[in-house]
Amino acid sequence: MWGTLSKPQTKIVTSSARGRWAVRFRKLSNYLFVLPMMIYLSATMAYPIYVNLDMSLHDLNVRTFRSGDAPYIKFDNYKKLINDPGFRHAAGRSLTFTTISLGFQFLIGFSLALFFNRPFPLNGLLRALLLLAWLMPAVVGGTLFRWMADGDYGVFNYFLQSIGLGRYKDYWLLNPDTALAGTIIANVWVGAPFHMILLYAGLQNIPTTLYEAASIDGAGAIQRFIRITLPMMRPVMLGVLLLGFIYTFKVFELIFVMTGGGPVDATTVLPIHIYRLTFAFFRFGEGAASAIMLLLGLLLLAIGYAQLIHAEEAA
């Protein structure tokens, strides 16, 4: 209807040869605007990923490192990894670490966001202070927790002792049963404020008129939360969970500083396993293959998320 009206007009403009070129140029010049970004992305993203992919398909190790004749072995590196108990163990550790970390980070972050969503004195200052944990370099945070959980000098043990639970003292990060939990606690401490800040922003965007209207209709606090807050926050929550999952799955420094992946392999998550494969064992091909698998896993997640958002917007 509207389109049919405007069509004849464009035809008039493009009737002359000169006009046709003008349009073509304008279309081309549009791409010109995208060009810098394309160059940047291909240099910093596409190219390294391509190189990594190429490495993962070759038998690149100590012997073939410099000779340049690493044989093309198709997906053998991937097959080897899937059958490698070390890789499977690391993938399992990563999943455990990520899901538990994320669960607590999200719950604590959401609670804090709800808390700060009400006006009270010093609200802004306290929020900023909480964010400090997230701003702190992972090496600092990791070292801090490492000493707090120390078996001989740590403040956790001191605390247990002082409340009469001295018999439960432990070398928290050196005990295979508790080390992963220790790194999770540290990671929750680091990550929860990040969740809080994003969720808080989402809460601020919910129009207060909705709550006012609901109150007038007689909705209680719980009903307002379930019927207004949760549905309105859905896209934000999904985004935060996705980002949180990706961030947590990639955590390396924090764990490396706290336990170095040990004791034994209790905290050997995928990024640590990849680091070892590449820089300690010089199994470059396998290291590249596991990096690609990590990337693919996270990419699938991101695509799923995009689909979900798309479906939601269409509805």
Partner: peptide
């Protein structure tokens, strides 16, 4: 030889697993 670091890693695992009682 060239694979020493990987052997060393296996030994570290063994020491830690035995001392921590795993």
């Amino acid at each position: 030889g060239a694979n020493y670091l990987e052997m060393s890693n296996a030994i570290q695992d063994a020491i830690q697993a035995a001392i921590s009682g795993q």
